[in-house]
Design a protein around this nucleic acid. Structure first.
Lengths: 237, 237
DNA sequence: CGATCGATTGAGCCCTCTCAAGAGAGGTGG
DNA sequence: CCACCTCTCTTGAGAGGGCTCAATCGATCG
């Protein structure tokens, strides 16, 4: 296992306020690990024995209900921490993490967390900010699911994915990892059929260009307008 | 402003790991404040100048969308912290906090947070756990909104409220603060009309007893069964 | 005792889900 | 390299859960 290149991760929010020496000390406890496309990094319900930082690739965090339905919690982009169950005191992972790409992650043993936090309190503060912004995102999602129609929710979801993991092409912005209609349905609380119909409609209007697990936003601004439009604006809900 | 009674709050998770002397030092920076029923503790979008700990009463955190729709983020019970925007690095409150009861809170100035955390790192760790569990709750809500029908969501919401703020009566469990059909609708992503119809139905079956801003669960177990039942269990969603 | 706010309930509609087929794309093994 | 197989996507038809619109009732409070 090679030493991690410190300079690559030094600027990440997780390590804000740490000196180079501190960083080296933190990284010394981590090992890096590679995950093939579609392989699981960890499974919902299993012991939370590690926490992670994504270096390359993309990871999908999803939850499965007792009755077998799945929902996508979030997509993790490079530079983000995930599997933070140990940091928030959960003995088991509340979700499954799957590499959707060939992915490389840093892995710390859960037992390192208390030690690292005691030594570098900044880590706790930085993680608190990260978890806090995820809480905001989750609340945003609740608001959207409560107040918007499916088409608006899908539009918002795609815009967010494009912002987080978009690759600029000359004819638009492409979501930088394989994503299916089913995935989008699980992000927006609908069915793959409805997502398919919506994307087909957008395709005919020239808003998107999409195929098998692949979506290009051709007219992000028009999609944004779609996302914001309130069909029937009911303020009493 | 009287000194806060330390023994009342010493056992709270926020202060876990602090000595009595530490606690005194933390509390010295807080003042206590009273809020009348229906008054705002803080408003969404305003500067996050303080963070709070609820001592008595109940506080509703709600978000308003640009188009005027409201959703209830959570109800705060005594002993919980709220308005933690300063701790998670938000310059403005992302929601409005309203006392639904006559309520008493401890108030710290936002500027105290960095100082307190530097001096007592345990505070950051403890807050991280709190924010983490709220993230879990929010995800649970997303899962429910994605996979369950309105009746199940209402059942879950009421059971949660009863567990968090239920008062045992001889004929059931009463939600310990005023809560309207509208509030429940805003917690579950539906309309007050649908909530009203559901509760009317339950009332006829003897599951609940309810009135103006008042709900008693007469048969918590039967409501639990209702909450878990999956009408049409669709595992492909 | 009037006014305001919350709750109830009916009627009709529509957005989205469910059920059902089928087509296309990509991967794989012989 | 081709045939096959699987996985994803598409699309139609029909049904229904919950929303919208509308009106009324009841209770609480000043």
């Amino acid at each position: 296992m090679a030493t991690v290149d410190n300079s690559m991760v030094a600027h990440l929010p997780l390590f804000a306020g740490l000196t180079a020496a501190d960083l080296a000390e933190v990284l010394r406890e981590a090992r890096s690990s590679r995950f093939a496309k579609s392989s699981a990094v960890f499974e919902q319900g299993t012991d939370a024995t590690s926490f992670f930082l994504l270096l390359h690739g993309h990871v999908r965090a999803s939850k499965t209900t007792p009755s077998g339905e799945q929902i996508v919690v979030r997509y993790v982009a490079p530079g983000e921490i995930f599997g933070v169950a140990p940091a928030i005191g959960l003995p088991h992972y509340p979700a499954t993490a799957t590499a959707v790409d060939e992915s490389v992650v840093l892995v710390w043993p859960a037992t390192a967390w208390p030690r690292l936090v005691a030594r570098f309190p900044q880590l706790a503060t930085n993680t608190l900010q990260t978890v806090g912004s995820r809480l905001q995102e989750s609340h945003t999602r609740v608001v959207e699911m409560s107040t918007q129609q499916v088409e608006q929710r899908v539009a918002h979801a795609l815009l967010r994915l494009a912002k987080q993991s978009g690759r600029k092409l000359d004819h638009g912005v492409e979501i930088d990892f394989p994503i299916s209609r089913q995935d989008i349905a699980q992000m927006t609380g609908t069915t793959l059929h409805t997502v398919s119909r919506i994307l087909s409609g957008w395709e005919q209007q020239g808003l998107v260009e999409s195929g098998r697990q692949r979506i290009v936003l051709r007219e992000p601004h028009k999609i944004f307008v779609l996302a914001e439009q309130t069909p029937g604006d009911n303020s009493t809900r």
